[in-house]
Amino acid sequence: MELILHQVLAGLATGAIYACLALAVVMIYQAIDGFNFAQGEMAMFSTFIAWQLIQWGVPYWAAFFATLVVSFMAGIIIERALFAPIHNAPVLSHVVVFIAMFAILNSLAGFIWDYNVKTFPTPFGSRPLLGNGLISSHDGGMIGVTVIMLVLLYLFFRHTRIGLAMRAAAANPESARLAGIRVAWMIALGWGMAAGIGAVAGMLIAPVVFLEPNMMASVLLYGFAAAVLGGLTSPGGAVLGGFIVGVIENLAGTIPYVGGELKLTIALVIIVAVLVVRPGGLLGQRIVNRV
């Protein structure tokens, strides 16, 4: 029983990271109807920027928020410079640029900061948080930050004009332009926010997986799985999907004879099974449209 409880809590902690990344994936999916394969590498690059700032003696939280701002602006610049010009290009052109960005950011990070594994500090410490060390204070911090971010995003999209403008631009770009919404800027803003969310995910997971240019490879896969499982149209679903993927992955590891080797397989099998029953994902919106 203790073992299962432990695995569930540990799963929630890693799930929080998948949730962050899934959130970023959903943000860009909403804006451009495509998967950003470079999302993980953008997050990794942001984390390196934070690491560099800390190395230069900047206090953790100052570095954290500076990285957030830099990533947000970089997201906007990447959209304006690379994706706005190919906005009407076929989807495969987007895929090629995503893959190119993946490779470029990966090698650039290796070039600037080399491939040696680095430690990354956590602001939450690594004390046991609940009795018997079931969950560390860093795990608790990760879950807390993810939940706070989701709540902030929810409030932003539901209760601000610009949030509504972004939703309108994603749902029906032409009609949004007819209402005077500057759709191109809304897409860029979505990219900026996604880059910021990704940066948070990177900075939270770096203390656990350690910092190096390939740190996000497996995390990104889980993040995608979480986004699809939760429903690509729903930020709440992305977070739910993240936690579910994290917990399933950890529980699968405890099944006798399966162990660590097949836990990824089991997690993905369960996800596929869910999608067969609910193709839109768990919370993906079913659009009712009368004609």
């Binding site: 939703r167 749902a171 032409e174 009609s175 949004a176 007819l178 919106q285 009712v288 449209n289």
Partner: peptide, 10 residues
């Protein structure tokens, strides 16, 4: 516009 341009999810 023709086709009404409804934001169906909103």
């Amino acid at each position: 516009p023709q086709g009404r341009g409804t934001f169906v999810r909103q």
